[in-house]
Design a protein around this nucleic acid. Sequence first.
DNA 1: TCATGCATGTAAGAGGTTACATGATTCG
DNA 2: CGAATCATGTAACCTCTTACATGCATGA
Lengths: 175, 175
Amino acid sequence: MSADINATAASLLGFLHDGPMTGWDLVARAEQTIGPFWSLTKSQVYRELAYMADHGLVTPGVTGRRDAKPYTITDAGRATFAEWAARGPGEGTIRLPLLLFVTLGRHLQPGLLRSVLSEQRAQQAELLKHYLGLRQVLGELEDMDPHVLATLEYGITVARATVRWIDRLPPEVGA
Amino acid sequence: MSADINATAASLLGFLHDGPMTGWDLVARAEQTIGPFWSLTKSQVYRELAYMADHGLVTPGVTGRRDAKPYTITDAGRATFAEWAARGPGEGTIRLPLLLFVTLGRHLQPGLLRSVLSEQRAQQAELLKHYLGLRQVLGELEDMDPHVLATLEYGITVARATVRWIDRLPPEVGA
DNA sequence: TCATGCATGTAAGAGGTTACATGATTCG
DNA sequence: CGAATCATGTAACCTCTTACATGCATGA
């Protein structure tokens, strides 16, 4: 019946439940709230917005400052989103070159894997620190959505697990 | 100088360091060793193998049983792989609809998020059990590559972390 | 006024998925 | 003999990334 949408478009409809937003806003919002687990590029966003406007899932509002064009979700949009959500989250995509490096470790030049791992450890530790600071700040806000906090918590969990995993790697790895 | 390859092709070259393999073998190998963290489809594999054969990075051997065509990595292939590896692992891609669901939790029909989370918990717990069994078996093998074991360990770490994360989610999530 | 940030969009190409088509071999 | 598995490949399509092009607004 209603228009077919992909996961990217669906996520935009999801964000639009909070009120009208421009393409720019949507990119920023996604980046801030689920950045690492749900990437979006502006090209995708503008394309999906155009498609959805064509199909009546969103309606463009009056152009504001700097050509900003806010889109509002329609009833059809909400219905389409609900249908999409009812199908459940699919499998998702994970492609971690770091893990590929580890798997192929014995075919890499000596030392490369070790240096890659230690760099990665530093990055993850930094990220973890950043997340913890964010949790501190956001946790004190009055009407903070617990769902957004839960996503942050996942980031913390995974970053911490990754650091520990690197620390506990046996010395043969990368030797 | 040498041919430009993408990460997918590079991973195939990596696997081919272990000896000649057919496209079919490569898909199976990837699936078994880094399945969840490095997905490959056969279409991609056959495409990249053809491209690499064109550029002298691999050479097809004589067709064996059932049209099986084994590819052997060449010196140029090894050099190209080493160059690719020297550039380090890039950022990777992660796109988890589950996290999107959590983020958008308050816009989902009542109960949906909770049921999705409990299903996910069951899946992860199952996966964890599977990994632990695998570790048991592989750990006892004599000449098991510690790098492959390390990848498995990452899977265990992340699955465990995910289960705990779900268990510790505050009751407001999905309420 | 000049750099920076806001804001939209197009074009081209690379990468990835799905469906289709074909046939050999093995095992029960 | 029939089903399952091995094995290769093509075609169409969708999705995603990168580079390019344009211009308004703000603040130093």
